[in-house]
Structures are given as C-alpha cells and as structure tokens.
Design a protein around this nucleic acid. Sequence first.
DNA 1: AAGTGGTCTAGACCACTCG
DNA 2: GAGTGGTCTAGACCACTTG
Lengths: 255, 255
Amino acid sequence: MLPQSLDRHSAIPLYFQIQQHLSDEIRSGKLRPADPIPSEQEIAARLQVSRMTARQAIKYMCNLGLVYTRRGKGTFVSGVKLEKNFRQVLSFSEEMRAQGNRASSRVVHFKTIRADSELAEALHIGLNEEVVSLCRVRLANSQPMAVEASHLALRSVPNLMKLFNPRSSLYQALSDNYGIEVMFADEIVEAGLARARESKLLRVVAGSPVLYFRRIAFTGNGKPIEYVKAAYRGDRYKLVNRLTRPEGGTLRHKS
Amino acid sequence: MLPQSLDRHSAIPLYFQIQQHLSDEIRSGKLRPADPIPSEQEIAARLQVSRMTARQAIKYMCNLGLVYTRRGKGTFVSGVKLEKNFRQVLSFSEEMRAQGNRASSRVVHFKTIRADSELAEALHIGLNEEVVSLCRVRLANSQPMAVEASHLALRSVPNLMKLFNPRSSLYQALSDNYGIEVMFADEIVEAGLARARESKLLRVVAGSPVLYFRRIAFTGNGKPIEYVKAAYRGDRYKLVNRLTRPEGGTLRHKS
DNA sequence: AAGTGGTCTAGACCACTCG
DNA sequence: GAGTGGTCTAGACCACTTG
C-alpha cells in the first residue's frame, strides 16, 4: 500500500513520490473504489515525513479527483475511471493519440489575413491587424473528423509564416520558437448543421449535425494567444466533461 | 490591497478570510489582470500569520483559476472573467438564475419504470430494477430550452415518488430527504437532430440542431445516483468550458 | 544580492466520526 | 476516547528571477 521508502536525494519532491505511488495502486486496482487510503498520520509515520508533506500528497490526488476526504473518517478512493479524457488543453494529435487513433492533418490554407471584429475581440488586437490563419482538416485513421481554423496575432508570433511548417505541431512551434506555453483555454460549443463548405471538407451531406467550437487559448498571464474556430462531425465526435461542485470553505464551529 | 486585520475568533478560517479579501479586490477591479498580488511573505508579515497560511490562501485562489504563480517572480491576477459559468454541477434553475433568466419547468411524466441495459449500466444496478423517471421540459422566460429526463434507482431513494413534488427541486429533495449530495458529474455531449417527439416538446421543426447530453451524477463516494438524458435546443443553448493544462509535479534540480 | 515561490519539518489545537 | 482530517505556527533550505 505504501512504498518501502522514499528517494530523499531525488529531484522528485517527496509529496510527489507519495502521490505517484498511491495513484499507481489505484490505477492498478490494488486500491479499489471506496477503499480507504492510509491516513495522513500513518503515511507520516511510516515514510518518516512530516504530516504536512503527507497531506500535500493527498491534497494533490484530491484535486485530481482520484480520492476524496471526509473529516473524521478518512480518505477514500473515488469510484471514477480517470482513463477517460477529461478535457484538457490538448492538441488534436495528442487527443487522438490518447484514444489510440492515428491522427493526421491536411492543410487547407496557411496565410495572413486582416482581423475582422470577431478576431480583434477574441485576440485583443486592433481591427485589420495582421493575423496568421491556419486551416486544417483533422483526420483520425484517415477519416475526416473536423475542420479547424487557428488564428494568431502576427504581432505575437513574428515570422511564424517562415518558422513554422504547417504540417507539424503548432503548440510545439509556439513553445520552441517563442517560449509560449498555452496554460488554459475557454471554449464555447454549439450544435449546428454543416454548411456547404464544411460538408465538402468533412465528406458529409450538407445539413448533417456538427459541433461548432470557438476556443480562445491563453498563456499563463492571461493573454489570448490563439483563436480557434472548428466544426466537428456530429457522428464521430463527442465531448466528455467532468463537472464539479463549487469549492467552499470549511467552517470552523465556534465553541 | 490587504485587509487591516483578520478576525481571529471567527468561524471562518484565516486562509479563507485572506482569500476572500483578495478575490473581492480582483472581482471589483482594484486588482487588474497581470497585477501582482502581495507575496506570501508580505501577507504573512502584514497579517501576522505564518507563511504556510498565506500560501494556503494563494493556493486556493490558484485552484480557482483566479491567479497564477511563477517561481521566483510572484503571483499574478489571471486575466480571466470568472463571471461566466464555468460548468459546475448546477441544477437547471440554478444555471438559468445565474444568467439572469427566469427558469420554470413543465412535467411531462413522473413514474417508475424498469431499467433497460443503458440505465442499468449507468446507475450500476440490475436489469429490470425499478427506476424513478422524471421527464421535464425546461423553460427559460417561458421559452422551451430543453427536454430533460432524470433517472434514479428507486432503491437509492425509496419513497421518492411520495416524498417529492416533481415541480420542486430534485437536488434539494435528495439533500433534505436522503442526505444525498451530488459531488460531481460526468457528461457526454453530442450534436444531433431533433427527433419528432423532442421537436414537438421544444417547439422546433424536426431536424433542427440539438445538443444531446447524457450525464451521470455521483455522490462523494463515487456512487452513481442520477442518470440524465437531455436534448437542448441548438439555437438557444451553448456550452462554455474551461480547459486546463494537466497538472505536473515540479522538479527539484539537484545541485 | 535580494526577493520570490516550492518544499519540508515537528510540533500544536480543533471539530468531527465512530465504537 | 481514539482516530481522522482541518487549520495553524515558526522556523528552514532550495531553485528561480531580476536588478
């Protein structure tokens, strides 16, 4: 249930080693849903760490939704499959690979355009500013899944047109060439019917159901970096979301 | 920027008071996106708390996405509107109210049925077990928005048929009568075309775009309690999601 | 060099749950 | 009453960032 000992000279923090070990026990099925995990004090005593460190490991798994805690009772494995992709900022290829599909893309266009009001608002730039527009058909196992158009302010990524090979990973290029890391993204999803242009690219009949996405990706400091408009085939794509309860503070009752 | 002092005799934990104060400063606009918030040490010194307590307050806001931290630099306000509903487990009425709409419902049916294989799998019960089925049309400002059918294993909520007024809040009834609190939910969203029965209830023409939801709500211990199937009008409803980066452990570099 | 957040310690008191 | 998690303290050393 607990490791024999921790590597105190490793670059991996102690709380992370503890968390990894317990997570493995859960994923491997040795710890089953509703099973209690060792208490904070037991972890502290057995692994010779302070209780705060044991607590940090548990808090971490708690935030991941792997376990839940009950005051006075203990900490228990939550009966949830985490195999499923709860949606994170993943590139299309990362997402498909995670599901065991072979991802590929076909570039429809890669050019600079002028910002219309929608782009200007999304990217926080001025009207008519130059914007890099990359439109790709996304394929899984050679079947078209989606049409996706990424837009980035040229000002944020000067020379992207020359530095970037549109057949490679955009997020990788942002990281390598500009040190830009996408930290989170907000997206709006709507149901719609495939328009003529999309239906051709997706190889479906016009009027087929599609999921329309608009997504703004942000860097760590809250600056919008990428605006994506996409249409996903309704017959081949579904969203999987995890909804959680709003966090609330614990009240300490006065005596 | 920081409160004058904390209420040390309050039932509210110190870290929560600190977090509340800083959150208010952000929401009111006194702290603007990309502004630094006071450092952990400054909070600790000025408010006479230990650094770990200051840190806990910041960690809390960090988890909410209100701020982000940069090692060696500080903690900064993330430029994100949190007014938007990032999706939580909310009842339809809570969700509509949060958006300033008047929510109401029309009960289509409220009865017990036998579990088919889909229900049995979703609720972790046996085939043909008794299930409470509550189907409602959801209205916002008297306009139909969605058809929603909730299913609960009768075994989990004995007497629900008698205890519950289908025109009132289901989640409230679960909490009041059974002490059941929904802690999280997993949902699958797909795009589709309104079928005949749905199009009548939603007052749209058959074949209009809709968002199909299947949602399983769980109690804290990971037990599935409710299975919802719903169809939302594609022209009136959109999803807003916040996608985040997978959390990773920080590596401590060896010297 | 000074300041920041990341990790960690070894204690403490509390409220809650259960037998 | 014994065990649990929730909060809190007053220190410590470290790596990272910036001037």
